[in-house]
């Protein structure tokens, strides 16, 4: 299964993704002066998810437009589809965006997430059935629509949907904003200003749209020089090593034992403020260590609608 789009071509820094040339150059320079990257421990390889716009679908086949490529994917009776919740093949309508994860035990598609999106940030205002969210300096303000059924589910995890509080919801794209489906975190809410200590390099991995490119948002991008960090970012929940855009993180899903090298393409200053845990397989230490792109998240065996997995992060010191 082919990979979906890589990082975009625009200039690196806090305002945009690092260009491929910058990533390549930093890898060369780093290796020259500090030596080769430390070899990671054994792990299962990532799956090869792909992302694209649905061109058509029937019971046996899904056709996606991924960049300039047209991809045909085999559906099986076990293929599961998510569109605001578990649904059937009728959700695979042309024009919608799909993230597709292959089976790990043979040909065919395991999971399809249709028009899935996630909003993580600080609540700016709340209306009758919608809230305005500040998703951080790298992402635009977003409106989250809260239908009654979703509101009840979100309130279980986010009992105070008031301005100044953090929110994390998973939903589907709509012309008016994100249509919330469920909370993105399985833990009680924490106020935005709370910073708690946590053990380093073991914690939670979540996902974010990252502007439709692969890679990761990392909470501790150095604010100095050309590293790409946010100069006014608050101290994070976890004392992580300072890194830069283009650095390769070795991300290991502790639940599936799959690992992959994922480049940092964005400062994860919003993720840094969440001191929650993931309980996918055991209870992780507090703190979000990395926000992966949806495709990278699915590659490592994560379920996008679940919202997190326990992670071990390896970085060069």
């Amino acid at each position: 299964m082919p990979m979906s789009r890589r990082s975009g071509p625009s200039r690196g820094g806090a305002a945009g993704p690092p260009p491929a040339r910058l990533i390549r150059s930093r890898r060369r320079h780093r290796q020259a002066v500090l030596g080769p990257f430390r070899a990671p421990g054994p792990a299962l390889p990532p799956l090869r998810s792909c992302t694209g716009i649905i061109l058509g679908a029937d019971r046996h086949r899904l056709v996606l437009q991924s960049g300039t490529d047209e991809i045909r994917l085999e559906l099986t009776p076990d293929t599961r589809v998510w569109y605001g919740g578990r649904t059937g093949l009728e959700a695979l309508r042309p024009g919608r965006e799909a993230i597709v994860r292959p089976r790990d035990d043979g040909p065919g598609v395991d999971r399809i997430w249709v028009d899935i999106t996630r909003v993580t940030g600080t609540i700016l205002s709340r209306g009758q059935d919608a809230i305005e969210v500040d998703a951080g300096p790298h992402r635009a303000h977003t409106q989250v629509l809260l239908p009654r059924q979703a509101l009840e589910r979100v309130l279980v995890r986010h009992p105070q949907l008031e301005p100044g509080h953090l929110i994390d919801v998973i939903g589907t794209r709509s012309p008016d904003g994100t249509l919330a489906a469920r909370p993105g975190t399985a833990q009680p809410w924490h106020p935005a200003a709370t910073v708690q200590a946590a053990g380093p390099l073991h914690g939670t991995a979540t996902w974010s749209d990252l502007g439709h490119r692969r890679g990761a948002a990392y909470p501790a991008v150095d604010p100095e020089g050309d590293s790409g960090g946010c100069p006014d970012a608050r101290a994070g929940c976890v004392a992580l090593p300072y890194l830069s855009l283009g650095h390769d993180l070795i991300v290991r899903n502790s639940c599936t034992e799959r690992a992959a090298a994922v480049p940092v393409v964005q400062c994860g200053c919003v993720a840094a403020r969440f001191c929650d845990r993931c309980v996918e397989c055991g209870t992780s230490p507090r703190g979000r260590l990395v926000e992966l792109s949806p495709a990278d998240y699915a590659d490592l065996g994560g379920d996008l609608d679940t919202g997190c997995f326990n992670v071990t992060l390896e970085v060069s010191r």
């Binding site: 910058l22 150059s25 930093r26 320079h29 780093r30 002066v33 500090l34 150095d222 100095e224 020089g225 050309d226 590293s227 790409g228 090593p241 300072y242 890194l243 830069s244 855009l245 283009g246 650095h247 970085v315 060069s316 010191r317």
Partner: peptide
């Protein structure tokens, strides 16, 4: 031309 951080090191090209 480039200044960036790699954990315990800051690199300058």
């Amino acid at each position: 031309v480039d200044v960036w951080r790699e954990g315990c090191w800051r690199l300058l090209a």
